[in-house]
């Protein structure tokens, strides 16, 4: 259960997030908004790469603010950043293993997790020995998601997972997101610009504009919102 409450974030003197609050329970939640709205900043803050000036971020009742990133990861929060951040000169296998190797408790379950991963992303099984840097963009995205799942996290955060992907692969991606949610029961938070496709994968969503939450509603509610339809669905 992730709770973000009243968070202000500055880059230097520039304020980018104002009094931001959201929650993610046992559900899939979307985070929408235009470029530069603050979605990535919020994701970075949750994971400890950026510290808020005010406000609170708790997970499972425990405050994440005093923790360093690697500790937050060990609390059960996983992140797939927009740049993927894979280990380019390690094999697919090595990258996958690294997802679990440094989390106590996950180390012993590597084989089990890998079977689950191959279920969702069968192409990775074929590419097991290849270096990560030789995979295509879409495959790298899948590898990044798979790696983050290896630790069996309680919350999976994805930042713009569809960016740079061919349109044909995008709906495929969101289908898998739903699959993961159903099979694993892991909470999901997706920051996305591609609202239309993402709506199918989420239960609830927030819209952030200029660093503030402007709309909070169920997936259905968002789909019927005038503002959302005009600004994000092109209708």
């Amino acid at each position: 259960m992730l709770v973000v409450k009243g968070v202000d974030i500055y880059y230097g003197k520039l304020q980018v997030l104002w009094d931001l609050s959201l929650q993610v329970g046992k559900e899939s939640v979307g985070l929408f908004g235009p470029n530069g709205a603050g979605k990535t900043t919020l994701v970075n803050a949750i994971v400890g790469l950026v510290k808020p000036a005010n406000g609170e971020i708790t997970f499972g009742g425990r405050s994440l603010l005093p923790l360093e990133t690697h500790r937050i990861i060990r609390e059960g929060v996983a992140v797939v950043p927009q740049e993927r951040e894979l280990f380019p000169f390690m094999s697919v296998l090595g990258n996958l293993k690294s997802g679990a190797a440094y989390i106590p408790g996950a180390r012993d379950k590597i084989d089990e997790r890998m079977r689950f991963i191959f279920d969702i992303f069968p192409v990775l099984k074929e590419r097991l020995g290849q270096l990560a840097v030789t995979l295509s963009g879409g495959e790298q995205r899948m590898l990044a998601i798979a790696r983050s799942l290896m630790a069996g996290p309680k919350l999976l955060i994805l930042d713009e997972p569809s960016s740079g992907l061919q349109p044909s692969l995008v709906s495929d991606l969101f289908r898998r997101m739903r699959e993961i949610r159903e099979k694993e029961g892991v909470s999901i938070l997706i920051a996305e610009q591609n609202v239309r496709q993402c709506l199918r994968a989420i239960d609830r969503g927030y819209v952030i504009e200029n660093g503030r939450v402007v709309i909070e509603d169920s997936a259905e509610g968002l789909a019927h919102s005038d503002h959302v339809r005009r600004s994000y669905l092109g209708l």
């Binding site: 790469l49 690697h70 990861i73 950043p81 280990f87 000169f89 390690m90 440094y102 983050s148």
Partner: peptide, 25 residues
């Protein structure tokens, strides 16, 4: 060794290393 593999991971991508739970510092 796990420590060694962690070191290599850090060498290839320190940000990514943080995100898999490695204490990079």
């Amino acid at each position: 060794t796990r420590a060694g593999l962690a070191a290599m991971a850090v060498g290839q991508n320190p940000r990514g290393a943080k995100l898999v739970g490695i204490d990079v510092e």
